[in-house]
Design a protein around this nucleic acid. Structure first.
Lengths: 345, 345
DNA sequence: GTGAAAGCGCTAACAC
DNA sequence: GTGTTAGCGCTTTCAC
């Protein structure tokens, strides 16, 4: 394999000089000499060994992205944004699926550590299992101490720079919207209890109700888990409610759940939005593809990823970065919501 | 940072000995000595620097996976399978989005090369632009020569070990199925013309028709591009056909296209499967989520990824591997297909 | 069964 | 503006 030594030889310069031009260091090199080195490198089809370089510099132009599951469109979109900016800047993106399991997350962090990544992005949102935040913080500390840039893309137990969607306000706004449509009985399908983000959305929902002077009724909270199956399951319980106690709108903690809710309702013979309005959170591409199209809270996911990676790059350049930046969320009104009272029951 | 030197010191042995036990080499080391090294490593929370190791061994326990777009569920599923097996074996998975652009694919291969990956998996299927297969083959050759294990997960221009779904037979079977339902006018929405896999599915479709003694009518071929928008667009042209010339079934080259087809038909006021049957290829998770649920050709995508990675591992161990293995495909009949003639026109 | 030492390819002092 | 050289942390001959 061709190394910098052959390049130097062919160019008739020392390895140091060759390295200076190859590594784009800002060290002064004579114009002609530089040209010769570049020509030699091109001729030999040479590119530097990233491993060797990483060994010297102590970091490797690799970026780890921690996600729950790369097949989940929420993460897939973020990952795509991260990857775009990463590759534009010569970084390689490593997928780390955790399935939201602390053990897997820790394991990946360990493996990543061995590779001296330049940065790590936590796309998903902080697991809150007892004792886990501390363990995680410790592992992450080992990384940051050694210069790895760590960024989260959601509210998180980790106290590192973060670019995060306004989950609280998004949920609050959605409740406002439903209320302005005339809804008073608004159910909420929750996310996993151990996920910070899921809880913040729940809080936004509750805040929205309280602001409007509505009371929280226990059975308006349906347990979900951010999955389609969870949403489908959750609404089944509504069939047992006497008609006048049924919600006129169901707000799901994420889009996948909302899709499940729609499937469940269809099976029950309830029509959306005639009998009940449904809305989600995230604005995944699929929200526009289903029928009826899904009203949801828009997070610019790809942009979230792009911005997160830019933050990593800024950190790496020792630039000043805001500790926490909030990405605004907004309501996208589509066909799955309508005023209540269209129903026959 | 703690290196093997501190471990050796703490254990009171030489670096060589420490390395022998840490690197799990099968070199004989005294039982007690081994224990001491392990204890020291544990105490120091030591794990070997993957970069340094890679520098010696000339490959880095990294695996590149080349996909069109990681947000495409087809690739996401494969990637997930690959990642599972990779991480179980201590490999890191690098996402490489090419958007099916030769230039991006080449660029990624170049970057990967610098990192000395142990393996590269081409999840997507061979671009056939003029002159490109040769260029790609050359780049890949540089990699394989140096011991990188390269595997494709579809029919491909590259002549490397491959584990690939039976795209031809899947399409043929689907046509058989439609014919057995009574369909005679079966349209096919094609994939991108520059994609091998898309063409093979098209060939399977044609073979199925020919076997049944049906003729290929030109306007039964609708141009698509594997995207939802493409499917939506494609069916619009059918509105201009006189009713008796309209297809009674539309077979889309992949599931995304089929979803687009369903959306387009809905806009045109055609009901599925009453007015026209629709089917896809791939069996993405979403195929079960849409309404009506989608009849499609099942490829075990995650399994495809898992198996592909296993093939890489086998190659790395210099085991004998089959050059080409075919993964069977099968028909999953759901609600989007029915016998023709239910339509009112 | 163990240790000393070379060297993988690169960068960054440090000379000149 | 250029060259010499010392490592980065590891594996692996080659001695003993």
């Amino acid at each position: 394999m061709t190394s910098i030594v052959q390049v130097a030889e062919l160019a008739g310069v020392s390895i140091a000089t060759a390295s200076r031009v190859i590594s784009k260091s800002n060290y002064p090199v004579n114009y002609k000499t530089r040209e010769r080195v570049l020509a030699a490198a091109a001729e030999l089809n040479y590119t530097p060994n990233a491993l060797a370089r990483g060994m010297k510099t102590q970091h490797s132009n690799m970026l780890g992205i921690i996600v729950g599951d790369n097949t989940d469109p929420y993460y897939a979109e973020i990952m795509r944004g991260v990857e775009e900016v990463a590759t534009e800047n010569g970084y390689l993106t490593i997928v780390c699926n955790t399935d939201r399991q602390p053990a897997k997350e820790l394991k990946y962090l360990q493996t990543l550590r061995d590779f001296r990544p330049s940065g790590i992005i936590f796309a998903g949102g902080g697991l809150t299992e007892a004792g886990y935040p501390e363990k995680l913080a410790e592992k992450v500390c080992e990384l940051t101490e050694r210069g790895t840039a760590v960024v989260t893309l959601s509210q998180h137990t980790l106290h590192v720079p973060s670019y995060q969607p306004d989950n609280f306000d998004g949920a609050r706004q959605m409740v406002n919207k439903l209320i302005s449509l005339g809804h008073r009985k608004i159910a909420f399908v929750t996310g996993p209890a151990n996920l910070i983000v899921a809880n913040i959305r729940l809080q936004g929902y509750m805040a929205g109700l309280v602001e409007a002077g509505l009371s929280l009724t226990q059975n308006m909270l349906l347990p979900g888990n951010f999955s389609m199956a969870g949403g489908e399951q959750a609404v089944k319980s509504l069939a047992y409610l006497p008609p006048h106690e049924r919600p006129t709108a169901i707000f799901a903690a994420n889009d996948e759940t909302a899709l499940g809710v729609m499937i469940g309702l269809r099976q029950m013979g309830w029509q959306v939005p005639r009998d009940v309005s449904v809305c989600g959170f995230g604005d995944l591409p699929v929200a526009q593809a289903v029928s009826p199209t899904l009203t949801t809270v828009r997070i610019g996911l790809r942009e979230l990823g792009r911005h997160g990676m830019l933050k990593v790059l800024a950190l790496l350049k020792n630039e000043q970065v805001a500790e926490i930046e909030i990405a605004p969320t907004s309501i996208v009104e589509r066909d799955s919501t309508a005023p209540p009272g269209l129903s026959q029951y």
